[in-house]
Amino acid sequence: MFLYSIKRLIQGIVTVWFIATATFFAMHGVPGDPLMNDKAVLPEIRANLEARYGLDKPIAQQYWIYLKNMASGDFGISFTQQNREVNDIIREHFKVSATLGILAIVFAAFGGILWGALTALYRNRMPDIVIMFLVILGISVPGFVFAALGQLSVVEINDWLGFTLFPVAGWGTVQHMIVPSMVLGLGTMAFLTRLMRSSMLEIASSDFIRTARSKGLPVTRILRKHQLRNAILPVITVLGPSIAAITTGGFVVELVFAIPGLGRYFVQAVQQSDYTVIMGTTVFYGAFLVFMVIVVDVIYGFVDPRVRLE
C-alpha cells in the first residue's frame, strides 16, 4: 500500500512536469503575447517591457528559469494584474473555487445517488420516466444556460417575495453559495443519476443479492449493506475526476454570479496570453487533478474489499 502510493506519487510528478513543459511551449507557440495591448506601443517602450519581464531572453533560457522557479514554488508575477503574485492569486481564489466545487459535487453526488436509487426502484414507472427525462435535459443543456436561467429565477423569486431570499450575484454568505453551486452541480448530478441507476439495476440482478434474499435477510438490510454499497462504487470512481472538472469548469458560473474564483483567472489568462498565470493555474490544476485521481484510487481500496492495493 505504501509502496504503491509512492509509485503513484512519482508518476504524478512526472505527469505534472510534462503538463508544465507542454503548456510552456504551446503557450509560446500561439501568436500574440502578454505585452500586446489594444494600443500598440513604440518600439523603445516595447523593449523596456520585454526587458522588465525577461521576454527578451531566448526561449530555452526562459524555460529553464521557469522550471527552476517552479521547483521552488514561485510562479512569478501576473502580466495583467501586475502587482499580484500568481501564488497569491491561486491562494486567494482557489479557496472560493474549491468551496463552490465541493458544494457542487456534494450536491451532485447526493442528488445523483438519491435520484439514481429512486429511478432504479421505480424502474419504467412514472417517477423513473419523469426523473430520467430531467436527467437527459440536465446532461444535454450546457451549463451557461442553467447559470443564466438560475440567476433570472433568483431575480423573479426575490421580486415576487419582495425581499432578497438568494442574492443575484456576489460571494461571501451561505445564501450566496447555494444557487451557483446547484447550477454548477446540475450537469454532474444528472450524469451521476444515470450512472447510479444502471449500477443499481445491475447489482439488483446479481447473484449475491439473490443469495441474500433467499437466505431471508430483511429487504432494508439488503438495500443498504449490499445493493447501495456496491452500486455506489462506479459513482465514487468518477467522483475524483469530477471534482477536478467541476472546480476548473466553474468559469461560466463564476462569471455570471460574479464569484471571485480561480476558474475566471484560468480562462481569462489564456485569452490575455498572461504567461505566468497560464502556467501557474495549469500546473496547479494539473497537479490537483493528478492528486484527486490518486486519492480516489486509494479510497477505492477502502470501499471495495475486492481491490487491495499491494
Binding site: 443564466a148 440567476q151 433570472l152 433568483v154 431575480v155 426575490n158 421580486d159 432578497t164 442574492p167 443575484v168 450575484a169 456576489g170 462569471l255 455570471v256 454570479f257 460574479a258
Partner: peptide
C-alpha cells in the same frame, strides 16, 4: 446579464 440582474434586484 449579471449586470442587469443585479440592477433589477436593486443591488
Amino acid at each position: 446579464n449579471a449586470i442587469i440582474n443585479l440592477f433589477k434586484d436593486n443591488k
